[in-house]
Every structure is written in structure tokens, then in C-alpha cells.
């Protein structure tokens, strides 16, 4: 019988604090993201999920410690953090509406050989719409661009913030499939309000409540406990 393999911690957040104006948004958040697979970051609206993602990237001022593969990120500017292999799919997609689809993707290129084959395999529609202004795409197509930007490069981790927000049911399915494929190539830290999607994709979960970590563990365990799920997520868990 072989000994169980120790799971390596890829991202470690420790005592993370964020103040925005007068508000103390994150109040000592600590959690670990294991290498491989998908870790969901859940919580009610205003719990601090998006702020946590932005703090990891250095898009908001923060204190505490954030280590990616043992490297401390808190003293690095955002572009250097990203170059360590951090992909980002933002909540509001934040595609460049006045640039074409091709230009949006070109801007995201970091590696010498960007993975256009993977991107166009997942989203063939983007290949057909390369010359189209990204601002004229539908919400679902814009989300494809946002996910494609993160998939173009080899990443250690991809931070995905509410990828299915505002999408049609069909597009939710497509986005979930793309993220499942992305999870084969990189670790995902996924903020998701759609619990069905979170349950399908993630194995581990970190629940935030009012700027603090309220629960960490397996997604299945959380969902199997209706009282816990209702308490932290406002749902029954089934």
C-alpha cells in the first residue's frame, strides 16, 4: 500500500486586511488553496469575495501575507504578480470594448507561444469574430473573451470572479465547461454565486462571512449540511 501523497499548498493567504475608505472589508482573512483542482470562494453578497481576489492581485491596498508557491506577493506590483503565472477573470468581465476581439487576446499574451489552439477549441465563436469590436459582443461572448484571456498563457492559478453572473442558462453551461477544462491546466480559485456551478466544479471551499473566513473544507460536506449552508450562504444546500 503506497503512502498518501501530501497535497502542496499553492496559495496561502494569512491575516489579510483590506480597508476601503472607512470600511474594514477584510478582517484577517486566512486560507490555503491546494495545488490542482478548483477551490470555491463563497459567501453572501458583501462578504468580501471580490475584494479578496483583488487583494491577491494587488488591485486594492492590503496588509497581511499572500504567498504563491512560497513567494510573498504583498510587496509586488500587480503586473509582476500576474507574470508569476496568475490569470484573472474579473467579475464585470472588463474586456476592452473599443478594441477588437483579436486585440483583446493579443494584449493578454504573455507566453512566447500563446495557447490560441485551446482558446479557439473552447470558443470557436471568438475565431469567427476576431475582427469584431469587443464592445459589440453579447454578454456571453464577452465572458468568453474574459476567460480566453486567462487561458492564453500557462498559469499557476487563475482567479475567476463570478464567471456566470448575468449569463443565460446555455452560456452558464458553456462557461462551466470551459472552466472545467481550464482546471485541468491550472489551479482555479473561483468566486461563484451559482452554487450548482460551484458544486459541479469545486472540491474545496472557503466561505467568507462579513470579511472573515467562516468555513473551510470540502464542498460536498458544506452542501450536505443544510443548516451550515443556510447560515453562510442563505440556501438549503440541496
Amino acid at each position: 500500500m503506497s503512502a498518501p501523497t501530501a497535497i502542496r499548498t499553492l496559495l496561502e493567504v494569512e491575516d489579510l486586511h483590506v480597508h476601503l475608505g472607512e470600511s474594514h472589508i477584510l478582517q484577517g482573512v486566512s486560507f490555503k488553496v491546494p495545488a490542482g483542482g478548483v477551490t470555491a470562494l463563497l459567501g453572501r453578497n458583501g462578504a468580501g469575495k471580490t475584494t479578496t481576489i483583488k487583494a491577491i492581485l494587488g488591485l486594492v491596498g492590503r496588509s497581511g501575507s499572500i504567498r504563491l508557491s512560497e513567494r510573498e506577493l504583498t510587496r509586488m506590483p500587480t503586473h509582476q504578480i500576474v507574470r508569476l503565472g496568475v490569470g484573472y477573470v474579473p467579475e464585470e468581465r472588463e474586456i476592452f470594448s473599443e478594441l477588437s476581439v483579436a486585440e483583446n487576446l493579443k494584449l493578454a499574451e504573455r507566453d512566447k507561444k500563446p495557447r490560441y489552439d485551446l482558446v479557439f477549441e473552447l470558443f470557436p465563436e471568438l475565431q469567427q469574430r476576431r475582427a469584431q469590436a469587443a464592445g459589440s459582443l453579447s454578454g456571453g461572448q464577452q465572458q468568453m473573451v474574459a476567460i480566453a484571456r486567462a487561458l492564453l498563457n500557462e498559469n499557476q492559478i487563475i482567479l475567476v470572479d463570478e464567471p456566470t453572473k448575468g449569463l443565460s442558462p446555455l452560456m452558464v453551461t458553456n462557461a462551466a465547461s470551459a472552466l472545467k477544462r481550464a482546471a485541468q491546466a491550472a489551479t482555479l480559485l473561483l468566486v461563484e454565486q451559482n452554487l450548482q456551478v460551484a458544486r459541479t466544479l469545486a472540491e474545496k471551499v472557503v466561505v467568507l462571512d462579513q470579511g472573515r473566513v467562516a468555513y473551510t473544507g470540502d464542498v460536498a460536506e458544506l452542501m450536505a449540511d443544510p443548516a451550515l449552508a443556510r447560515r453562510y450562504l442563505g440556501v438549503g444546500g440541496h
Binding site: 492581485l57 506590483p77 503586473h79 478594441l99
Partner: peptide, 13 residues
């Protein structure tokens, strides 16, 4: 259009 998103793509603006 969106400076912070450019930095979030790994570019030194």
C-alpha cells in the same frame, strides 16, 4: 479605457 485591467494582464502600464 481601463488601466487597472491592463496591469491585471501582466503589463507594466
Amino acid at each position: 479605457e481601463n488601466r487597472s485591467m491592463v496591469t491585471a494582464l501582466g503589463i507594466d502600464v
